[in-house]
């Protein structure tokens, strides 16, 4: 790609992207780019000081998102974005901390952290870009790979049933759970904006094509074809029962907002309980001094 041309108009998302790191590493028609644009649009509408917003990623193709967003951003270890974010948020409760990472990172190696952060109602937003595969390492099966889909470690098709991620995090106590495909631009952006404004553990699953590995290996056309397929074969069903959200290979995908509720966060619980038990001896945590 050619160097930036000074005569070109400013990129509309320049304020929030590290333009000095463009071109990015993602393949053309990969769904991650679309998810990131939606996220940047949501951030632009988010009425919060951008200095106080931080991004944490794990490892993988989506794990690279942190590196392109012009905010305090941390590219942690494989699976550990959520505990890293937990530490960051607890140390500095004024921060809005968003984890953006992939399905393998968050639900396989990081699965334990995902369920515990949801259980604690840790006040972070998790955006999980689900491409049904480990892409960075060359297209191996993930805990999200639909049954029968082909991967480099399931060359005869996958026989290992996948997670239903909204059910997983919902049953662990997440306060906001939504799923969209990467082509539901407007709705995904709106959902991200809602999640950003939410107090507590919010989770958005973004169904996105991996053009290079998953689409090619399964002969599903280009990334764009697959993105369209996901979009056109989705059904919006807000509040759908979580048990009905399984994803089967190249079949209908139910999308929408499934959970949106209020609950005290980890720090709220710490403060409420300890002030009850300890009274004036207790020093409330993370509460702005009057």
């Amino acid at each position: 790609m050619s160097k930036q041309n000074n005569n070109l108009p400013e990129h509309p998302m320049e304020r929030l992207l590290r333009m000095d790191r463009i071109p990015h590493i993602w393949c053309s028609t990969c769904g991650i780019g679309t998810a990131v644009s939606c996220f940047i649009s949501a951030l632009e509408k988010f009425e919060y000081p951008m200095d106080k917003v931080a991004i944490v990623s794990g490892i993988g193709c989506t794990g690279r998102v942190a590196g392109y967003i012009k905010l305090d951003s941390f590219h942690s270890t494989h699976g550990r974005a959520i505990p890293f974010a937990t530490g960051l948020k607890l140390a500095n409760p004024e921060l809005k901390v968003i984890v953006i990472s992939g399905d393998g990172d968050l639900s396989a190696i990081g699965g334990n952290h995902l369920i515990h952060a949801a259980r604690r109602n840790m006040d972070i937003t998790v955006i999980c870009v689900n491409n049904f595969i480990y892409a960075m390492t060359g297209g191996q099966s993930a805990p999200t790979t639909p049954l029968t889909a082909n991967s480099s470690t399931a060359p005869y098709g996958n026989s290992d049933p996948p997670f239903n991620l909204p059910l997983l995090v919902g049953s662990c106590g997440a306060t906001y759970v939504a799923r969209w495909t990467a082509l539901h631009i407007r709705r995904l952006t709106k959902s991200m904006h809602e999640a950003l404004n939410k107090k507590g553990f919010s989770f958005i699953e973004v169904i996105a094509p991996c053009s290079t590995l998953y689409a090619r290996r399964n002969r599903l056309g280009t990334g764009l074809d697959l993105m369209k397929f996901y979009h056109d074969n989705s059904e919006i069903k807000h509040g759908a029962p979580l048990e009905e959200l399984d994803i089967n290979f190249q079949q209908k995908i139910i999308v929408g907002k499934f959970i949106d509720k209020e609950k005290p966060t980890f720090v709220d619980n710490w403060n409420n309980w300890l002030s009850q038990k300890l009274g004036s001896k207790f020093v409330p945590y993370g509460v702005a001094k009057a």
Partner: peptide, 25 residues
């Protein structure tokens, strides 16, 4: 009583990752 926070994590992988995040916080 001092003013700070303690979190019992789900395992030691999480504890150590949280430590790094907290230091940056």
């Amino acid at each position: 009583m001092v003013g700070g926070i303690f979190i019992q994590m789900e395992d030691e992988l999480a504890s150590m990752a949280a430590l790094v995040g907290a230091a940056w916080g």
